[in-house]
Design a protein around this nucleic acid. Structure first.
Length: 270
DNA sequence: CTGTTCACCTGGCAGC
DNA sequence: TGCTGCCAGGTGAACA
């Protein structure tokens, strides 16, 4: 469900409320949603959150010595509540000073939290594989251009590869390709430096706008307060199959690439 | 190594 | 109303 902007919104919100808060207890309702490969859970109780960071689509909830790495996958949510709440599909509860609780809710159970030592975070394989952050000023179009050399996959499929650029998912891949005027099914190895530049700029634009809007709640996404993101109103192509292109008014087309539904404008995207 | 498909789950919705 | 099939914002394993 969440891509970079949604995870970023949750990260910023949790940073306003979690630092300094003590973890008083953990209740795991679904075992696979809480991985503790080192058996560190007893050490977590009684420690305090210090900071929340995001890397790609991962959330990093730090305490003094430990870190909870979260991935929301398709339907995960982290809900912070300071009053008694009845929430469906809760997989993990992180209890704070009563009555505050941080709930990990996940209808489809693909997501989860992993407990690690801070010192081991740099060696955690899923994070090691991630490509550069698209919103970092240090990330240039070379990341896209270099990764595309020798690749015959569709450009959209390349964008979804987290090793190339971290944080891009199905919604924003389609949106960025539309903004850059590029065909999703174009072969990745036909990307030029100028086109790579346009595409990275488009990613930055759609991500930045979506964060301002609080993310995209197309169906399930909710922020840490349970509120919807408003960016769905600004989507140009995602979820708009058959509707008129916002630029040329011709009907948008839908195809499948790498198993993912892809919507684009055959007239505006070449 | 590259590229493609499928499995992992639950729920909502369109169509009959 | 109720059933069936399809689809969903992600990713990694299995396969050719």
């Amino acid at each position: 469900m969440p891509e970079l902007p949604e995870v970023e919104v949750i990260c910023r919100q949790l940073n306003e409320v979690l630092p300094g808060q003590e973890i008083t207890g953990i209740k795991v309702h679904l075992a696979k949603a809480f991985a503790d490969p080192q058996g560190l859970l007893p050490e977590l109780i009684g420690t305090r959150f210090t900071e929340v960071q995001r890397r790609g689509k991962y959330l990093l909830l730090y305490t003094e010595r430990l870190v909870l790495v979260g991935h929301l996958r398709m339907t995960g949510a982290l809900l912070y509540r300071t009053h008694a709440a009845s929430i469906s599909h809760v997989r993990v509860e992180i209890r704070l000073a009563p009555p505050a609780v941080l709930y990990f809710k996940d209808v489809r159970t693909f997501g989860g939290l992993t407990l690690l030592r801070r010192a081991d975070l740099a060696m955690y394989p899923p994070l090691l594989k991630l490509g550069p952050e698209p919103l970092s000023p240090q990330t240039s179009e070379l990341a896209l251009y270099t990764a595309s050399r020798g690749r015959k996959v569709a450009l959209k499929t390349l964008l979804l590869d987290q090793r190339v650029i971290a944080g891009v998912g199905n919604i924003y891949a389609d949106e960025a390709l539309f903004l850059a005027g590029l065909r999703p099914k174009m072969r990745a190895d036909r990307l030029t430096r100028p086109k790579a530049r346009r595409l990275l700029a488009a990613l930055k634009t759609v991500f930045t706008q979506s964060i301002e809007d609080g993310g995209t709640s197309f169906r399930d996404y909710r922020d840490s307060a349970g509120k919807r993101g408003l960016h769905v109103q600004r989507l140009a192509v995602y979820g708009r199959k058959g509707l008129p292109c916002k630029r040329c008014q011709r009907p948008l087309q839908s195809i499948r690439l790498g198993g993912r539904t892809t919507v684009y404008c055959p007239h505006c995207q070449k």
